[in-house]
Structure formats: structure tokens, C-alpha cells
Simulated scan of single mutants.
Amino acid sequence: MFATRFAPSPTGRLHKGHAFSALTARQAASEAGGRFVLRIEDIDPTRCKPAFEDGIYEDLQWLGLDWEHSVRRQSDHLDDYAGAVEDLRQRGLVYRCFRTRKEFLDTIGHAPHGAAEAVRPGPHPQDEEAELLRAGRPFAWRLSLDAARDTLGGAAWDSLSFFEEGQGPQGENGRIKARPETAGDVVLARKDAGAAYHLAAVHDDALQGMTHIIRGVDLFEATHIQRLIQSLFGWPEPIYRHHRLLTGPDGRRYAKRDGSVTLQALREDGMTARDLRAEIGF
């Protein structure tokens, strides 16, 4: 059965871009006679707030959306993601990385032309890692692309792909070769903050039986590394449908970090859900 989801992070109130994405996914599920799931991706303890989660429910209900009764909150399932990381660790697919963000930025700054290449630092030497562990330094678990390729084998690596029903930023459509190397050795978990987005999202997509991933084109590039993670675990391959992003009068896409006008503010200014739906094409 067709199944898709809307998976916001409660790091702020929803805006028009969120409304467009949620309505797009809900409409697709309705047209296919399938499932529509709401998932709360609240694995960032420093930015996610209960008040923002409450706001998500309030805004979606105002829009007239409904979803399956059970809502998965990722912060309630950190042990699931830790178990997945442990599986990868036992298979030699992840390594500890103690390097800080500043150290990476300094490295980039000294690269030719300041090129921000995909981060692939590799594991620390054993004696250095042991010393860092004794010192109690925080670390991240990074996925080793080299180990992943060896595990899958060259043929499987070369044939790794995904099917795009929507459109990528350059008009990509249809069967597309996955290029996980563009993401580098991504962080899958941190010692002090649990799972990272790529792992938690694909874990839950598989667990919840998502057949279609419908989301903004800004997440198109994430698909490359997510397909690799799915393949390493033997999880099903969903179909992807990336959609356009709404932009404001200034031509910039709506974003929380830019202080975009929220659905709450629009509602308080007198806009009705029907008016908003019509404005954004629903």
C-alpha cells in the first residue's frame, strides 16, 4: 500500500513552506488511497522544544490535515538508533571521529581555493584514539565509505540508485545513480547527542513502511547517502518525489532560520486555512 509521511522537526513554528510540503504529501496519499503518517523528528535536544511540537499539531489541524493516530517521536526511540549504530560498528562500517567542527573548517580554509570537499577524515590511529577515549573527549560515529564499498562489493556499489518521480534541482528524474561519495563519511551518531538525521530518518522510513518519500528539493542530495544506508541494512528502497520550494516576495525560500512568517502569525492576522491553501495551490 502507498505510504508517505510529513516529518517536521520541532525547532520553530511551521511556515508556508511546511504547509505546502505537508499538503503535497497528504494529497498524494489521498489520491493513491494510501497512508499518511506524521513523524516528529526531535533528536536534536538543544533546538527541539515541546512548545514547537504542540505548534505542529495546532498548525496541521488548522490546515485541515489528518494523519494516522500513532505519531512516532524520535526522541522516544533513541535505543533503536543506537542499536543500528552498534550493528554497523560490529561490521566495521563506522569509526570514531574526535575532530571538532572548527578543526574541519580550519582544514577547509587551508585547502586549495578553500574548497569545501566532502569530509572523509578516516579513523584516528589506534594509539591516538585510545588516548582521546581515556581523556573523555566527545566523538561522533562516522560511516566509512571505504568500508561500505568493500561490504557491498564493487558491482552493487556501482549499481546503487534511486527512482525520482519528482524533480531534482537540475531537473533530474527517473532512475538516478546514487553518488554517496558526495556526502563523505557522514556522521550517524554522536556520543553525547544520539542519532543523526540520515540514520534516524531512513530507519523510521523502513520501520513505518514508507513506500514514497515526498519532500522538498532541498533534500534531494541527501538521497544519495540515504540510499547507501538503506542498502547496508537491507531496508526497502522507497520511491522519491522531490517537490519545488515555495519562495517569498524576495525570491528566497521560506526557512525558519530566516524568520519566515509562521502559520500562527498568518492565522492571528486573519488569514483562513482555506485562503492559504488556495494561495499555495490547494
Rank of each mutant, 00 (worst) to 15 (best):
G166R: 07
L93G: 08
S75N: 09
E268Y: 05
E128N: 01
P50D: 06
H212A: 10
L14W: 01
A118G: 11
M210V: 15
R252Y: 02
F6T: 00
E31N: 03
R190N: 09
H113N: 14
F162M: 07
A135L: 13
R39G: 01
W62Q: 09
S70Y: 13
L245G: 03
G270I: 12
A156I: 09
K16N: 02
S260H: 02
H224R: 10
F163K: 07
A82K: 12
R120C: 11
L78H: 12
D42T: 04
G168W: 07
R5I: 08
R244N: 07
W141L: 03
E237W: 03
A130K: 10
E117H: 07
P169A: 15
P180Y: 04
E103R: 02
G154E: 10
E31W: 02
L143M: 06
T11A: 07
F139G: 03
D44S: 09
Q167L: 13
H243I: 15
E165Q: 14
F139L: 07
L245T: 05
L93T: 02
G184S: 13
V37F: 11
T100Q: 09
A193I: 11
L93M: 10
E237L: 14
E237N: 11
A19G: 03
A200D: 05
G171T: 11
L276K: 11
E221Y: 01
E268K: 09
R101A: 15
F282W: 13
G184R: 08
Q90A: 13
A222F: 04
A7I: 01
A193G: 08
P10I: 01
D66M: 08
L145F: 05
S231D: 08
R101W: 07
L88F: 12
M210P: 00
T4L: 06
L78Q: 15
A32W: 00
S161K: 03
G209D: 05
H15E: 07
P138C: 06
